[in-house]
Design a protein around this nucleic acid. Sequence first.
RNA 1: GCCGGGAUAGGGUAGUGGUUAUCCUGAGGGACUGUGGAUCCCUCGAGCUGGGUUCGAAUCCCGGUCCCGGCCCCA
Length: 454
Amino acid sequence: MIIQRPRGTRDFLPEETERRSQAKKAMQDVLERWGYREVATPTFEHLELFTIKSGASVIEEIYSFKDKGGRDLALRPELTAPVMRMFVSELQNSPKPQRLWYFGNCFRYERPQKGRFREFWQMGCELIGGSKPDSEAEAVALASRMLQSVGVSGDIHIGYLGLIRSILGKIPGEHRSSVMRMIDKKERDALATLLEEIGCSHFGLLELIDSKGESALDRAAQIVADWKPAQEAAAAAPEPVSANEAAAVTSSSSGRGSARQGRAVEAQLHLEEFVQTVDLLKAYGVNFTIDFEIVRGLEYYSGTVFEVYAEGLGAQRQICGGGTYELASLFGGKETSSTGFGLGFDRIMEIVQMNSSRPSPVFMAFTPDVKREAARIASRLRESVPVVMDVMGRGLKAQLKAAASAGADYAVIVGKDELDAGRLTLRDMSGGAQESLLIAEIEARLKAHFQDIC
RNA sequence: GCCGGGAUAGGGUAGUGGUUAUCCUGAGGGACUGUGGAUCCCUCGAGCUGGGUUCGAAUCCCGGUCCCGGCCCCA
């Protein structure tokens, strides 16, 4: 009986594995050119690491288990938390910034579908401890360059949480998380209704998330500017003037007015930060769309957030997500702002146009009586080029046939005649031309051939 | 967790309640005992799994597993 693969897992045959390592290599080269260094973390961690980061609800989708000592463990569902755990316990006192990258398999107990598996691979990086606008621009530009390196073009959408959090600050605490959730889920109508109900529809939140692209920045600036007259108006007029104007503030106390003023100033600072990120990103030559609707749901994101979408992936269009977050302190470390992103490697592989064309090894063909000499010659040649030898006990004819069907460009033939002459036969498999050459000559010839191809 | 479609030699397919068949590929042998992708012949190789109906099931029925697409979710 044949044992099947567990659900949502895959086998990668040589050709696909070759494609994957080529793509990984291309993106890895970009990371290394940007000064990032690879790290690796355990495949399983304490379950708590992930629930602290993402909440208890993720347990549903985690491969978690108790080990024989009764510990609650989990196969990692993502890599940011493990990398930040490692940072907090090992690297906190090392020079900043830390530029780290990773590539690893992750596991989620989900229903498989196009571009979604239970074991999947993430590639990503964390830029730890840098200052915001610069780190953010670097991260987005780096993600863009990595995708470019494998010929994938995606739509980059970048949002900014600083501003949205300022607005949230004006909203009663008990509603904040539902507001965030609705933005994230794009439940626009429900959001409008809720904001109306709690009297917060005038802060410009809907306007902000509705505007996309270049104009979104001006819109945002306008919204922040509108809060200033609001303070003056609030000081002068105790009653809201109009429900549609930012001037319509429900409070009349000067104490709360100054709190608002504080927030407006803060929001303005935030906005300036974001403007710097955007400017720098333009300098990097990256194409992107400003989209304040990108909020990435979670509490620990604090600054710029971004996502990249690609066509041709059905329902799973997102191939990259990231942003600036505060996680170090969640894991017991010092407050450290970091920016990072993860790429969905498997989704990228679905759309990447890459043909693996690794040249087939040289075929060492020999007659049975000179097997030992053939093995020695093969070893010598392997110092410069890939060589395979028959292990099927085939005759010379069958070996050459096998070499041809394996796509070998060259065969080296050795038998008694060759040994007597002190020269080997080099056969060009494409035309069938043969030459009698010294081993050093063959080595040089083959070496040159492989260098041409690779 | 929900909805739909699937599973037949290594890979494609067709078909039928009664030694299935076909295309490609692979292995072994032969035409051909130191020179290849050809051709021909022979052999090997299959119906996801567990149960039921039946004299007989790869085929009909029921569970399960896995795959594909979508919903939910997506750190």
